[in-house]
Nucleic acid binder design. Structure first.
Lengths: 196, 196
DNA sequence: AGCAAAAACTAATAAGTGTTAGTTTTGTGA
DNA sequence: TCACAAAACTAACACTTATTAGTTTTTGCT
């Protein structure tokens, strides 16, 4: 009889969630079967149900864990007293850092949220939209305070968020480009451009 | 007996491909069934096989049609005699335009390529990597010619490509933000930044 | 009109899906 | 050591999957 090996501070459900995130990232949610997940966990598929409710629940847990993490961070930046440019810079930086730490989960939340069931789907999109609005507020206020050029705030948010999401592709080059270089260069390009 | 309705210049296979791209974009490749595709085409599932080889073949056709389109465009830009900055700008602009025209196909190529079978998977990644290398060449040459700040070329390519890919999220706001505004603002931010 | 090819149909197959039921084994505290 | 709960197991269910075989209908050409 196999046994789920739990690390020091993690419950069995957390172990399953972690492996699920990796599997869903690699194969996508729909193409991943509970039998495959059970395999990497080291157990038979039905045994998983002693610890989790359903396959969908796994996706929900992953998406909302990440969603809340981002929401908390941007709230705390909003309540800080930095210049608007500094706030935007802080957003870019924590985005990169959360991504570097919880890569698989962030990837899954970004790519597989559409397989959430209602009402989770609607909730998730609400959270995400409110996040985008916060960032858009920073841009607008930055323009008003004359820190930022009179750009279209929506396009700017789109550009920034897409750029940081692109870190998904970075992982295969982790060794060649250190995190600090990445963060600095990306912040610089998005804020100051690359043209001399 | 239902009949596949073909437009003026499109074969029945092309009709199926177009609908498949839309379906795969909406539901993802793995979560889309041939029965669903048949439904939107207006036919029974087995009838599709009079026109196509398999489900995987649909994905292959979509991915390589888009892949080749991008490759051709960047080749033609490479062979033009523009400044390097102008070449990079041209890349950003055609990216946005291809995306605006063939939205569903580009989306599928970007998101569902991992479900390609070998040897198509390897081929696709090779094409993509060579595309990235071309763009990276523009950056490096731009730095050498003193047109561009001494940035990390890899990070810069990553930032640019991710930013333009983010247009996926733009569609829901098509009405509010015209294509030209989008193109200009995005080019501007990526090349010149947003900070005053 | 009649014949051949194209393209639709129905029926069926084998494999894979998430999940439940019922049972057995394991780990823990008295 | 014994009992109880936690967590593993096997077997099975009801569905869905892509695809094939075989048949019938439609289309287009002479």
């Amino acid at each position: 009889m196999a046994k789920i090996v739990t690390g020091k501070n993690s419950s069995k459900k957390e172990v399953i969630l972690k492996k699920a995130a990796t599997l869903f990232k690699t194969k996508s949610f729909s193409a991943s079967s509970m039998r495959e997940l059970a395999d990497v966990v080291g157990v038979e598929a039905p045994s998983l149900y002693n610890h989790i409710g359903s396959k969908s629940e796994l996706l929900q847990d992953i998406c909302f864990k990440i969603g809340n993490q981002f929401t908390e961070q941007i709230e705390s930046i909003r309540n800080s007293n930095k210049t608007m440019v500094a706030k935007i810079e802080a957003v870019i930086r924590f985005h990169i850092e959360i991504m570097a730490e919880n890569f698989d989960e962030v990837y899954v939340a970004n790519h597989e949220w559409k397989h959430l069931n209602e009402p989770y789907l609607t909730d998730f999109l609400t959270i995400r939209r409110s996040y985008e609005k916060s960032l858009m507020g920073f841009i607008e206020e930055g323009i008003n305070k004359n820190e930022i050029k009179p750009v279209n705030p929506y396009v700017t948010v789109l550009t920034i968020l897409s750029a940081v999401r692109g870190l998904e592709f970075w992982q295969r080059n982790k060794k060649n480009v250190p995190l600090q270089v990445l963060e600095n260069d990306m912040v610089n390009q998005l804020l100051n451009g690359i043209v001399k």
